[in-house]
Structure formats: C-alpha cells, structure tokens
Design a protein around this nucleic acid. Structure first.
Length: 387
RNA sequence: CGCGGGGUGGAGCAGUUUGGUAGCUCGUCGGGCUCAUAACCCGAAGGCCAGAGGUUCAAAUCCUCUCCCCGCAA
C-alpha cells in the first residue's frame, strides 16, 4: 500500500553547487570510489533485517565483509537452540557471521570492538540488530553507520514502531534511513519514504512491506552516498514520540472502546502478542481467547454489519426507553453471529466483529465455528479481566 | 530432558474426575413453512472417540508408549 508521498530526501540535498575546487576534489573521490566497492558490515537479527540483507546481497558496489547478529539462543517448543533469520541467510551466502554478546567496556566487549574494527568497514548497515551500539562502535566505519528504522522519524522512535503506529490508528507511516548516533533513533535523517496503512493491514503485513521499502530506500541512500549526493536533516526532537516494546498486558482489549479503536489494536497486536480477551460463560470455565483480524475486504463489510447489529440490538433492548437514547447494551455481550464473524457489543453503542478466535490451547477458528462450539445456549460475555 | 493446553461424524465443542447403549451447536441431504431474521419446523445420512499395547465382565473414560497440533517462555 504505497502511497504517493514527498520524498524527504529530495529536500535534503547537499549543496549541489560547490565551488570549482570542491567539485574537482569530489569528482576525484567519486572516481576512486566507483572503482572500489564500499566495504560494509551488516548488523541485524530478525526477519525485518533479513529482508534488508537479502536486498543488499544483490546490490552492486557494496561488498559485505561481515554479518553481525544476536547469539543463538534456546527457544521454541522444547527449547532447541535457534539461530536468527539473518544468520540463516548469511550462512547460505557464505558470509562471515559474528555473534558477540555485547560491545560493553569489558574484556569481552573490547575484543568484539577490535574484531569489528579489523574488518575496516566503510559502512555499518544496521537494521533491528537488538543491541545498543556505543559511540566507539559507531566511530569504526570510515564513512558512516546507517540505520533503517520502520517509522517516519522523529515519530515512533524505539523497538515497536510498526505495531504502535497501527495501534494508534495511524493511516500513514514509513521508513527512515538515518545516520546513527548514540542516542536511540535520534540520528540525522538521510532519506525517508511514507507508506500508507490500510484497514486490513496487520503488524505482520505492514512489517513485510516496510522491510521491502526500507531495503529499497537503503539502496537508494547508498547510491546517493557514492554519488556524493546524500544530504541529511536533523530530527526535530520536539516532534519525537516513543514506541516502546509491546508488553503482554497490553494485549487485553478494553471493550468500552469504540469499534475503530478496537480494530486498530487487534491489527497492531497481530500476530504477536495477539489481542486477548476472557470469555465468561455461566456454568463453564472462563476461557482466554486471542483475536485475529479478518481480511481488509471483509473488515469493511463487517464493521458496517456490526454497526447494524448494534443498532438492532439497541432498539430491541431499549424498547421501553425513549427513541434516541444511548444504547444500553453492556460492552462485552455477545450479540450474535453473521458471515462467519462473532458480533460483540463494545463502546459508544457500537459493536465489533470478531473474525478469528483462538482459544487457549486451541486453533484459530472463524466466528461461526467458535459460536457453535463455545457459546451454544449460554449468555456469555467478554471482558479484559479473568474475573 | 524448560512449563502447559489439545487431538471425539464435514466444522467447532461436551462427555474423561466418579469406566456401563456416543451427545450439543452448526454444516450436508430430503420434506414443510415464512413478508422477514445468525430464519424456523419435521426427517435422514455421517464416528473403529489420533495410533499401539495393557488393566477390566465392560474403556472415549484408568495405566504405559508413539505420532500430530497449539500456547507460554526466548
């Protein structure tokens, strides 16, 4: 969902009209760099970083001399030792892989720093590495350390920019290439590109798209760097916002919110940690259920349908009240089921349609299937707490 | 040997504690009814209860092992 947006970098050009001696000197440097590829060290860990590394592997004039990624850690069911997507990719291409624990000031960190310096890189290309890089590491590359960040900086600095943007109901976000500084995501912006957020986008789909866009934008930035045409603009710290890592507690939905807010949360929390609710049933155990959003096309349809449901319910439940009074349906009540979605009352007299429900220990299922199995005759209601 | 949940007709579940003719909500098929609803009413088909072994007069249910799915944790 790429939308036309101003390419900030075009407004950040260096002075294109330097004096004659400058121009001669620059041309000489450019000629030299055209013959010699830039030596780059890549640092990244998850799939987002792997997508960018994949793109760099087929980029001319960039010589990847080493790949840094987080150490292998026991994870997954059974706690088997797993390695990162970046390591897997680097391995396929026979690149040297280094996995230092950290770069702190101790014997171990000092060794890691020395090892990195030995690669004599021109560039450090960093994307979701998972380690804070101290200044002495950022000082190593001859040209500069570059970072790919999945937001329109200075907004959404931090670990979870993609999810936070969706959860906040944003309709536009983007990717930024910046020159790294020691403070978190605060370096000067080199290039930036906006990407629209669709009503059906989840953290996963947007993640994939931003990774692809980020990779392309990084390649553009590298081309400009080689051409000596890469300008930069300082971040306006007064516009900065933070996107901290998601906490598990944030997964529980507050059903007193209106449907649009709930939908933004469900999408931003998908696939991890997954929006969660408790289902209370008379005479049965309380059930923890995770929610997944439906497709974009269905979503628009369902939001309309849910609104209709709420209106109908308000009418029948409030028959004794005067017309036009606020809907008295308690948020969390199950209103019904339609088109494979489970319709539940939420805030402001609205209703929200659940498409994908995954009971604890069970598999993901549609609204109708869930209704058939778990709701039957009971007067059940949903809430964010276990009791 | 990290912890836990689950595998029951096409779908989703109950039943397992306290062994004793396999049930519910749907779907499917046939018939009926309705201006209409997540429609409704009547009838039918469809299951060696994941697999193997054991205990028992009798096992979906108790014991042992195997396979597959899912969550936590990272």
């Amino acid at each position: 969902m790429n939308i036309p947006a101003p390419d900030v970098a075009q407004n950040i050009s260096t002075s294109e009209h330097g004096t004659a001696p400058d121009r001669v000197g620059r041309q000489a440097r450019e000629a030299a760099s055209r013959q010699r590829p830039l030596r780059a060290v890549f640092m990244g860990t998850p799939e987002f970083a792997a997508t960018i590394l994949r793109r760099l592997l087929r980029t001319e004039h960039i010589e990847l001399v080493a790949v840094y990624t987080q150490p292998d850690r026991p994870s997954g069911r059974g706690h088997k030792l797993c390695f990162s997507p970046v390591k897997a990719l680097a391995g396929e291409h026979a690149l040297p892989v280094l996995q230092p624990e950290h770069f702190k000031r101790d014997p171990q960190g000092d060794a890691a720093v020395a090892e990195l310096a030995a690669f004599a890189p021109d560039l450090l290309l960093v994307a979701a590495y998972g380690l804070i890089l101290p200044q002495r590491v950022l000082d190593i590359p001859a040209r500069m350390p570059l970072n790919v960040h999945a937001s329109l900086l200075p907004r959404y600095r931090g670990a979870a920019p993609i999810q936070r943007a969706i959860m906040a109901g944003e309709t536009v976000t983007g990717v930024t290439i910046m020159r790294m500084q020691a403070a978190l995501d605060s370096g000067p912006i080199l290039m930036q590109r906006a990407v629209g957020i669709g009503i059906g986008d989840t953290a996963r789909t947007l993640h994939d798209e931003l990774a692809r866009e980020g990779a392309e934008l990084l390649v553009s930035a590298l081309e400009r760097l080689r051409a000596g045409a890469l300008g930069e603009i300082r971040q306006d710290d007064s516009l900065a916002s933070h996107a901290p890592k998601l906490r598990k507690e944030e997964a529980y939905l507050d059903l007193s919110l209106p449907a649009a807010s709930l939908h933004a949360l469900v999408r931003g929390l998908s696939p991890w940690p997954g929006a969660a609710l408790f289902l209370h049933r008379p005479g049965a155990e309380t059930l923890l259920v995770k929610l997944e959003p439906g497709s974009a096309r269905l979503t628009e349809k369902q939001l309309a349908l849910a609104a209709g449901f709420a209106a109908a319910h308000a009418y029948s439940d409030n028959a004794g009240l005067e017309a036009g009074s606020a809907c008295a349906v308690r948020p969390g009540l199950v209103l019904g089921c339609a088109d494979d979605a489970l319709v539940v009352a939420c805030g402001q007299g609205e209703a929200y349609a659940f498409y994908g429900l995954k009971p604890a220990g069970g598999k993901l299922m549609g609204g109708q299937a869930f209704y058939n199995g778990y709701l039957r005759d009971t007067h059940a209601f949903w809430s964010s707490s276990e009791d």
